[in-house]
Design a binder for these strands. Structure first.
Length: 419
DNA sequence: TTCTGAGTCGAACCCAAAGT
DNA sequence: ACTTTGGGTTCGACTCAGAA
């Protein structure tokens, strides 16, 4: 475990109420490797091919080659790679170890290692690879929650990039469903990222190395499947809290061929099934249908009823839940915007009231000061004037110049007269 | 206008891993 | 054993902009 992960676990343990929603990085499958991006691309390309063939009903036996045509490679990469380069990269994939922690049936922990591929061959028109069992099983069980690919993306990303963007990436990945993190006070953020109080003490340094820098690199990375931006909350000019927003990035390199319309799906939908759905509705409607279906499935699970997501997705897409859901969300969005406007108007009014109150207090103080500095005879003259101009009832004027009603009148007269 | 936090660029330094 | 390389850390110098 790295320091930052420890910190995150600590954060979870302390269970700070305002931050109870922040999830700690989960225990990771450790996949150690150092392959290049190009090698990774070959690997993903081959895995996609494997998936397509498998879904078409082609069962692969252990040790059987899966073939990819050279033209498909050329099309995917945008250029024709040299045979010697392909050989070199496939060999690197074979040699590179993919080690992970597994839990044996008896509960014992074990380490398991293979290559990214176990055999390869390159011919003039096609290349063939044999995948290790663990990967074949993972592709064949893509909808299983513990499928290695759920963890692989983040690990691969982790190995390609720096210290902080990996942790930040994980934080953002956890909220990709919600679309944004809650406001995170700066100290909590430092803690989560594993930054000690004396490190990057100035916000500008923290921003430079732990926020903006990593965010830039996450967004620029070909491997990242999310896009992140962030917003500071300021007290005066000081930044006191942060919020990250993120959305899934439409990317072609990392996934196993899934259409982006299904990016919110919580189980894998076969490519053939995806095509069937795509013929029924446009991308946006499909997205909303799946979001609505996710919500419905959660409600069902809350009630203790098991939800078959495949069935729910089918129902949602066939009945067009997406259209209704989209209008509902848009209405909620509009309401929120309206509420925002109302709140802002209210705040402006409160500020104006305060301003008025301050002004009137200032005026009163000024009048009071002027009144106090008057010579007794001038005060008496003013009192006489008050009696003729304001013609107050006798009971009010019997106190003479110390009468409350007179003083109020005189303050006003003096403040206006002087101002 | 001055002060100060933030944003940006770049240089220097440290350390560990990899290469020779 | 020594050198190179790369990432992380820290800092200075400068600019910008909001608040007093």
């Amino acid at each position: 475990m790295t320091r930052s992960q420890n910190m995150a676990t600590e954060l979870k343990k302390t269970g700070e109420s305002s931050l109870a929603q922040i999830k700690a990085p989960q225990e990771l499958v450790h996949i150690k490797h150092k392959i290049t991006l190009l090698q990774y691309k070959y690997w993903i390309l081959m895995l996609r091919t494997y998936r397509e063939l498998y879904e078409d009903g082609e069962a692969f036996r252990a040790g059987e080659y899966c073939y990819l045509s050279m033209s498909a490679v050329t099309e995917a990469l945008g250029y024709q790679p040299k045979t010697s380069e392909i050989e070199r990269d496939l060999e690197a994939l074979r040699v590179e170890s993919l080690v992970r922690n597994v839990l044996e049936k008896d509960g014992q922990k074990a380490k398991e290692g293979t290559g990214f591929i176990s055999q390869w061959k390159v011919m003039s028109t096609r290349i063939g690879v044999v995948f290790p069992d663990v990967l074949r099983e993972a592709v064949e069980n893509l909808d299983r929650k513990d499928s290695i690919f759920h963890l692989l993306n983040w690990n691969i990303f982790n190995s390609f990039t720096g210290k902080y963007e990996a942790v930040l990436y994980k934080l953002c990945k956890d909220y990709v469903g919600v679309g944004e993190t809650p406001w995170i006070p700066l100290e909590k953020f430092r803690e989560y990222m594993g930054v000690k109080p004396e490190e990057y003490a100035d916000f500008k340094r923290l921003n430079q190395w732990v926020i903006s820098g990593p965010v830039k690199r996450i967004n620029a990375s070909e491997l990242s499947d999310i896009e992140v931006d962030w917003e500071p909350e300021r007290k005066q000019r000081k930044v006191v809290a942060l919020k990250f927003r993120m959305r899934p990035k439409r990317q072609t390199m990392l996934d196993l061929g899934d259409h982006p319309a299904f990016r919110f799906a919580k189980v894998k939908i076969s490519l053939a099934q995806q095509n069937e759905y795509l013929a029924k509705a446009d991308t946006e409607t499909l997205e909303y249908s799946i979001l609505r279906a996710n919500e419905y499935a959660e409600e069902q699970e809350m009630k203790g009823e098991p939800a078959d997501l495949h069935k729910i997705y089918r129902k949602a897409i066939e009945q067009g839940w997406g259209d209704e859901y989209r209008s509902k969300l848009q209405a909620a969005e509009a309401k929120k915007a309206k509420e925002e406007v109302r709140k802002r108007a209210e705040a402006a009014k409160a500020a104006a009231d305060l301003e008025r109150k301050k002004a009137s207090e200032a005026l009163r103080a000024k009048g009071e000061e002027a009144l106090a500095s008057l010579e007794p005879e001038v005060l008496q003259a003013l009192f006489e004037r008050w009696k003729t101009e304001a013609s107050p009832p006798a009971v009010m004027s019997k106190n003479g110049p110390s009468s409350v009603a007179f003083r109020a009148w005189a303050r006003k007269a003096l403040a206006v007269g002087e101002g």
